[in-house]
Amino acid sequence: MKITKTQAGQTITYVVSGRLDTVTAPDLGKEIDAVTPDIKELVLDFDGLEYISSAGIRTVLTAQKKMNKQGVLKLRHVCPAVLDVFELTGFADILTIEK
């Protein structure tokens, strides 16, 4: 998995590619933990993300929980395989997934 971070004012974007699974999810988890309270918009750009597991979903949910308190979380460029997983688990409805 590859994570690239960019920040513009109160918006942070992580471009995540590869696989978000048991092994790699903790790396994204650390990045999200480090997001400070002044950030109002967190974007997870999944352009190039091919696979997500329950560990990856949990990391996304942690981000959602955190941003519920301080702003918004947006998911971008979600490929059909990853979107399927969000739909299977029912989380597609509570996450903001930009088309």
Partner: peptide
């Protein structure tokens, strides 16, 4: 087909690893 690959990897990870 790709969805079989994804399903196998998912089952292996969720069942075995988790």
């Amino acid at each position: 087909p790709e969805h079989f690959r994804d399903a196998s990897q998912r089952l292996f990870e969720e069942l075995f690893m988790q």
